[in-house]
Nucleic acid binder design. Structure first.
Ligand SMILES: [Zn+2]
Ligand SMILES: [Zn+2]
Ligand SMILES: [Zn+2]
Ligand SMILES: [Zn+2]
Lengths: 132, 132
DNA sequence: TCAATTGCGTAATGCTATAACGTGTGCGAT
DNA sequence: ATCGCACACGTTATAGCATTACGCAATTGA
């Protein structure tokens, strides 16, 4: 899914995420956008839905938060499953792909005849800086 | 973490999960246990915390639900990361391990000096029956 | 006996997400 | 033109998930 011109709300939400140095919850985004006219969660969630659909934002399931894609120029979806390492101390997120992991999981689903729609891989822990 | 004798509440929650044919949310568990004296979410969450700690229950982050461990006699934690395939149609969950996936992710974290604490791998889609 | 730990019960609150309603705007088909 | 449709938007209310805070009781172990 390629991203068309963003609407005003979508652009506002995306900018907040792009400028953040870590994942944000929908309600945190809402708070940051109150000065721009946002009043209700749905304004955020509707924008997020589209941004997720366009692949320019990822959802971190394990922490109910959202993050701008770290590879804005590639199409993340085309590289297979995106994986995340999330530092529980400083909040930083590293986004990565691993072809071999994709391959193994695809093998498994093929063997089980399981039709995968969406795969989540999230590693929570401490980044190099925070672990030191 | 090995499971000691469960308390009454822990045993009730565990039994509900063990008898269910799919993952349950904390509030669904609460409803099923009202006849046994449960009145508040915390009674469920406290029991779940312990059951998770003992490794006899897993939390599915992507659907905010809980499931009894499918390998009650092995120690799931000792096998590395547990992965789940979750059918979005019938709700069935298949729990599995893949050493090679673990290995790849461990390689990645070692390379980044990221100290992994908890890794989530969840595949959502359609099981063989539902995909047919 | 005293202190610390653990489990339990209850009420209140906070965080996350969606349902349901209506409005306005752009745009192609008739 | 104007009708119908798709889409974004705004608002209110509600549903669903999880924790904080307080107090009590039983257990353990010094
Ligand atoms: Zn990405
Ligand atoms: Zn960090
Ligand atoms: Zn297990
Ligand atoms: Zn199924």
């Amino acid at each position: 899914m390629n991203a068309p011109q963003l609407t005003k709300n979508q652009a506002l939400v995306f900018d907040v995420l792009a400028k953040a140095d870590g994942p944000l919850s929908a309600y945190t985004i809402l708070d940051k956008l109150r000065d721009y006219g946002f009043r209700a969660p749905l304004q955020v969630y509707r924008a997020l839905d589209k941004l997720l659909e366009y692949g320019v934002v990822h959802r971190l399931e394990s922490i109910n938060s959202f993050v701008a894609c770290a590879h804005p120029n590639e199409n993340c979806h085309s590289h297979g499953t995106v994986a995340f390492a999330i530092c529980e101390s400083c909040g930083h997120v590293i986004e990565f792909h691993d072809h071999e992991v994709d391959h193994r999981l695809a093998n498994w689903t093929r063997g089980k005849k399981f039709k995968a729609e969406k795969t989540t891989i999230e590693i929570r822990g401490l980044c190099e800086t925070c672990a030191a």
